[in-house]
Computed example of a mutant assay.
Amino acid sequence: MRLNIRQMFQVSNEVLKISVKPKGAELCEIASVKNDNQFMWHADPDIWGSYAPNLFPIIGALKNDQYTFEGKTYNMPKHGFVRHNDDIKLIDQSKNSLTFSLIYNEDLLKQFPFKFEFLITYTLDNNTLNIKHTVKNLDNKAIYFSIGGHPAFKCPIYKDENYTDYSLVFEHEETAQTYLLNIDNGLVTNQTKPAFNTKNSINLRPDLFNEDALIFKDLQSRKVALVSKTHGEILNITYKDFNYLGIWAKPNAPYVCVEPWLGIADAENTTQKLTEKEGIIKLPQDETFNASYSIQIHEHHLG
């Protein structure tokens, strides 16, 4: 399934081209200019109909889809309200970048009682795409939020490969274990299990995500590469500003999501108070928050 590019915002340089959907300002294509190699999942709606949702102002699920703030209860869908939002506007476009903005409105204040501006900027720099998240506090009080990415990468990239030919290779040796989710409600348990096949790699296999996402709270690495046995490193993701990492796909699906997070789904024992939520960011009045990650495509695959 190919994108209808007329419905997208696009920028390119000499080696890469990207496309972004207006809805949710969702990145939906990273491709080689020279050979048209496609690196992102094509969002097959029969499997998983997204490309790279932007997660704000929560990550994952809330207990009963609710939280409380100053004694009031608010409802919020999984991963927040940016991902399917039609109110995001393109506010700046240059030769190599796109910037989108979402500003609070009366409907959003019913879900999230804070005045804010959310911005996301996609910038191409040679064979690297930089993705910058910005949150501005427009309120007369501190605001609380989480923020993150959810990019899905095509896997395998080439027709002569299988999913099991791929692994995720981290920059440092790791002892971290994955925190298990409660399958029934999407909440984080206190149970962990090993995820690494070597000291720094996780082999992809069709049943890897049978228990949902791999969730890491304490990785040493801030860089991970998607590596093929036959074609070498395909791409890498650098996430220096993010303390949590999710890895996920639908079981048996030909993609993998590598998700830099500042925040995490509710724990099973949550108080449901937003100010006490694990990983929550507190942004004082009149201040601005920035966090970026990057996706670099290895030059061997660019033609």
Rank of each mutant, 00 (worst) to 15 (best):
R2E: 13
I5P: 08
N13H: 10
V15L: 15
I18R: 01
K23D: 09
E26L: 09
L27T: 04
L27D: 00
E29P: 00
Q38Y: 12
Q38G: 10
M40G: 02
P45V: 14
P53C: 12
L55K: 02
I58K: 00
I59D: 03
K63M: 08
D65E: 15
D65M: 05
Q66I: 07
T68P: 01
T68W: 03
K72E: 12
K78H: 06
K78P: 06
G80L: 00
G80M: 02
F81A: 05
N85C: 06
D87R: 15
K89G: 07
I91A: 05
D92H: 14
Q93T: 05
K95Q: 14
T99G: 01
Y104Q: 09
N105V: 05
L108K: 08
L109F: 05
L119M: 13
Y122D: 00
D125F: 15
L129T: 07
L129W: 01
L138M: 11
D139S: 06
N140W: 07
K141R: 15
A142R: 04
Y144A: 03
S146D: 08
G149F: 07
H150F: 05
F153L: 05
F153G: 03
Y158C: 08
E161T: 00
Y163D: 01
D165M: 00
Y166W: 03
S167T: 14
H172C: 12
E173A: 15
Q177V: 10
T178R: 00
Y179D: 01
L181A: 08
N185W: 02
G186W: 05
L187W: 00
L187G: 06
N190F: 10
T192L: 07
T192F: 04
T192H: 06
N197Q: 09
N197F: 11
T198W: 02
N200L: 09
N200T: 10
S201Q: 07
N203M: 13
L208P: 04
I215C: 03
R222F: 11
V224I: 15
L226N: 00
S228H: 06
H231I: 00
L235D: 05
L235C: 06
I247G: 00
A249K: 10
K250L: 13
K250S: 10
P251A: 08
P251S: 12
P254M: 07
C257I: 03
E259S: 05
P260V: 08
W261T: 08
I264R: 04
A267W: 14
N269H: 13
T275G: 03
T275C: 04
K277R: 15
K277N: 06
G279Y: 01
G279S: 03
Q285M: 13
Y293R: 03
Y293N: 09
S294K: 10
Q296R: 13
Q296H: 12
Q296L: 11
I297E: 09
E299A: 12
H300F: 10
G303Q: 08
